[in-house]
Design a protein around this nucleic acid. Structure first.
Lengths: 231, 231, 231, 231
DNA sequence: TATGAATGAGATTTCATTCAT
DNA sequence: AATGAATGAAATCTCATTCAT
């Protein structure tokens, strides 16, 4: 009874309608309780199905967990991809383009679903190395690919300084965005979250990043202070 | 040493020797398995005691968890504090001083214990808001206090640009250090970790940060006034 | 019969069939071992269900205990009530009627279930004051009501002596019946049980009671003052 | 260090000073919690000794229980015996003598210790048939012996009616006293206890008993209504 | 003698998983 | 396909008992 015409059918002997309800519910419960702490009963209840029904779609709790992480990431990434390509006709400078990407990227990061998955990844990934691989492959390398390429272009064009490699730079940008996204989302819990205009935050961070990437003053050797630490 | 004549002597004594073994073992197991996934039996075994012994010192699993987080943080922070005050004789510029602090801070962050606790904090803190408070209060505000104050001094002296507030800046620095520390520690798992000289990484990040904090060079090299704040 | 379309359908349903099996088994095991001594495993086994099944119907051991006492008493009392009302067409004298009641009452007291519950009530009721209340309310006051009323009628009519109040008299009758019922049931254990015709015992006791209730001095009308209150 | 000159040394390799503290504490805790529910820790605490100390005097919990029952009964009975023999020089009629005995007996029954033991006997004696024997032998037969003999004398002398055997009569008297003693002691719990002058209660019961034992009025057949129930 | 920390068997309780309906 | 009662393995927690001090 599952219509095979449905858009996101694909992927594994995966289900379709009911399954999505279950996955959504599972994500929420896994997020609240962790993998071991989540009770199938609660997931079922939240999904509005009976416990047994879950087993029609997922062989066991662990595989459900895997599927939750995979599917949530895939779905979110798809959205991210569409957003990014939709606005990809680009601006003049690399900095301008980066602005666009960071905006989308940020929107992705502060998503409830991404946060939940991220938390699970931090907390429970030890025992699921294949999920770690999946995450690295699908998320990091994807985003890193896009953004890293742009940075590389900036370096090549001289818009960015050349004494830092693109992937390090991208990691720096990523670290700032990721952490701040998390802090923003957990503001209530941590009560030490970034203040000020939340909408502006990603751009503030980007600006900081761009400063750090500016080529050294062409004229004098102002950067020589830096090298002093080597002595 | 303890007068056995008082029949109704304090039932539960402050943890002292045995408790520490248990806490250490528990940290390891909680880290591997998460809170719900950790089995008391495993903790006991790793601590080299019997299951029941744990209950002589901790009323239940949850309280053990709390104590693990609290005590580990307290111990680590103490070490951090000693390291920092030990080298507090200050450098010439704020940048110099920051170098020192970042070195210690980084050493703290890549500690196995901190990483474990951090993971637990990310993954399991929902249900332990009081631990979140504890973490914010004890760790974040402590480190932020120290480093934030230094940055504030740099801003005041003109060594750093004035159009960013100290606490935002500190959060930026913190986000870079924290994320990179984690990535470094999980290199094996994520296979996307920072490459290059691990020893150098915190300084590379600091340098990037300092660039971002440099005052906009309006005319000439105004930053040479740095030494003025020393007076 | 139960609409499965309502997802959040009542979680715990009223005990019905299975619960009764469990209660019966529990009564037996509680009786043998006492509350603390009874093992859920044994109860489950005797009920022919798995350990976990018990928890589908009772939240924990203590509540099971409570329910066992409550339900057993209610069931038995219902039977007692039916027996009594069934034979309520009344006799000539109060003594005649009392005979009938005592017969039923005795049949109730020597019931295995009553004996078990009574033992539990004596032995374990400290910690369950609400059960003590329940017992007093449901059993004692019910029986006392019936029998006490009859005795009161006897006193009023002058058939019984007037210098004793009905409720004291009823307690005397009750004490005799209860103790002898218990001794009879525990004959094997105590080896000091009443001898003679068991069937006759309650009537022997009643006769003794009636003697004790006989108005004084048949000669003069000393008791006639009593009957005055009947007019 | 146990003085063998102590009066109540005797009986089993039984202890002496410390042991008595333990037994007293144990009786209280067993009474509150039942055999299985009582924790050695609580007994130790209440006795003001360490857990281990108990094992210096009693091989295990069950034997402690046995000893508690035995010793408490023996002690109480000894007191009862002294009281009874002390006032045994007797009155004129059997009824008079019985009055004296009932007074002592009642004092024994309402004793906290007797009540506790009685409760244990009712509740936990299944698994300790030897204790049941002990109880029957030491308590019932002892009291029954004394009182039964008196009743027999009364019957023989014609003071009591002859159509009831002494031991049945004694059981009737006993049942009234025992139950009422219990109800009196549990007044707070059962809220259906006998009212009126507590001091007077045993005598009220005895009077009732004596009435029931009165020979049938020699003159007219006033009691003939009674015999009608035999038809 | 006396202690009480330590033990570990055993009890209660939970919950992933199955399966008859 | 869907259900949810039933299962029983496995986890948490308790406590009688031991033993080094």
């Amino acid at each position: 009874m599952i219509s095979p015409t449905s858009p996101d059918f694909a992927r594994r002997r995966a289900p379709e309608e009911r399954p999505q309800q279950i996955i959504d519910a599972a994500l929420a419960v896994f997020d609240e309780r962790g993998l071991a702490g989540a009770r199938l009963e609660d997931i079922a209840q939240r999904a509005g199905v009976a416990k047994g029904t879950i087993y029609l779609y997922f062989p066991d709790k662990e595989e459900l967990f895997r599927e939750v992480v995979r599917r949530t990431l895939v779905d979110r990434l798809e959205a991210l991809g569409q957003e990014i390509t939709a606005g990809a006709e680009a601006g003049a400078s690399v900095a301008e383009q980066l602005r666009l990407y960071v905006e989308r990227w940020w929107a992705f990061l502060v998503t409830t679903e991404y946060q939940a998955v991220y938390r699970l990844i931090i907390g429970e990934l030890h025992r699921f190395p294949e999920l770690a691989d999946f995450y690295t492959r699908e998320v990091k390398s994807r985003v890193h690919g896009l953004v890293g390429a742009m940075i590389a272009r900036g370096i090549a064009s001289g818009e960015f300084r050349g004494d830092i490699d693109a992937s390090s730079a991208m990691r720096i940008l990523g670290s700032m965005l990721m952490s701040h996204a998390m802090w923003t989302c957990r503001a209530r819990l941590l009560d030490d979250a970034p203040t000020g205009d939340q909408q502006q935050l990603p751009f503030t961070l980007l600006d900081f990043f761009l400063r750090g990437m500016r080529p050294d003053a062409p004229a004098s050797g102002a950067a020589s202070d830096d090298s002093s630490n080597a002595s």
